[in-house]
């Protein structure tokens, strides 16, 4: 349809550039960059203090609707998963995202499989990072991060490193600009939901019904004992 392409472009240019001047990419880029300079002072007041703290608070807020906990190192993730499975009365069998850092952990007592089923009860994954402003997890698809891990399970347990929490949406966009663009970027904010019947919010539409975020924060000092 090269005909369609030239017809559309010709029609647009007839309106935008009646003098037939060519578009000036440098001037357009400068104008686009100028628009972004206006963003920081007018953002909603969401992130104060440490980004990881703001992220954790946002994730567990009713608006996002996920649950969250904090551990000091990734080695503690299997224990966190065991606690979650026990608390929710789930079988000790998980789809484990095929990420080398996850596969290297000690999963004894839990059966793990690398492929995800259509009705997978529990999947455990590792996010590339998180965004404090919105409480979003960031996933980049790839060989160690299949997209469907974030969409098929009923319970999705996700570890994310505290040093990979970006304060604002724009901070993530700036980081993305320095990385190879993946096939899929998924920003995941809470469990799936729908308001399609009379505007009533119901969790667990087609994606996960439960999202549990495990923040891996070496600077965190857990309480000395449960009694503390």
């Amino acid at each position: 349809m090269s005909d369609a392409r030239s017809t559309i472009l010709t029609a647009i240019r007839a309106t935008l550039r009646p003098d037939r001047a060519a578009a000036d990419p440098a001037a357009i880029a400068a104008a686009a960059a100028g628009l972004l300079l206006r963003v920081p002072p007018l953002r909603p007041d969401r992130v104060r203090g440490a980004a990881a703290e703001a992220f954790l608070a946002r994730v567990a807020s009713p608006a996002v609707g996920a649950s969250a906990e904090r551990i000091v190192s990734l080695a503690g993730l299997p224990d966190a998963v065991r606690r979650y499975l026990a608390a929710h009365d789930l079988a000790a069998s998980i789809a484990l995202q095929p990420h080398p850092e996850l596969c290297a952990l000690d999963w004894s007592g839990i059966a793990t499989h690398p492929r995800i089923d259509l009705d997978e009860p529990v999947a455990v994954g590792l996010a590339l990072g998180g965004i404090a402003e919105t409480g979003s997890l960031v996933f980049h698809s790839g060989p160690t991060a299949p997209t469907l891990f974030a969409f098929l399970p009923l319970h999705h347990i996700v570890a994310v490193a505290a040093e990979r929490i970006w304060p604002w949406l724009e901070d993530y966009a700036a980081a993305l600009a320095t990385l190879p663009v993946p096939r899929n970027v998924n920003l995941v904010t809470g469990p799936s939901g729908t308001t399609d019947i009379e505007g009533t919010l119901v969790r667990g539409a087609h994606g996960p019904g439960h999202l549990h975020v495990v923040l891996v924060d070496p600077a965190y000092h857990p309480p000395a004992s449960d009694a503390a």
Partner: peptide, 24 residues
């Protein structure tokens, strides 16, 4: 649209499946 601050899923689709991808 809904009064939420962000949708649950914001996805950027860029091209077809890459070498080594498990899905897409």
């Amino acid at each position: 649209a809904t009064g939420a601050e962000v949708t649950q899923y914001t996805t950027f689709h860029c091209g077809p499946r890459r070498p080594g991808d498990a899905d897409g």
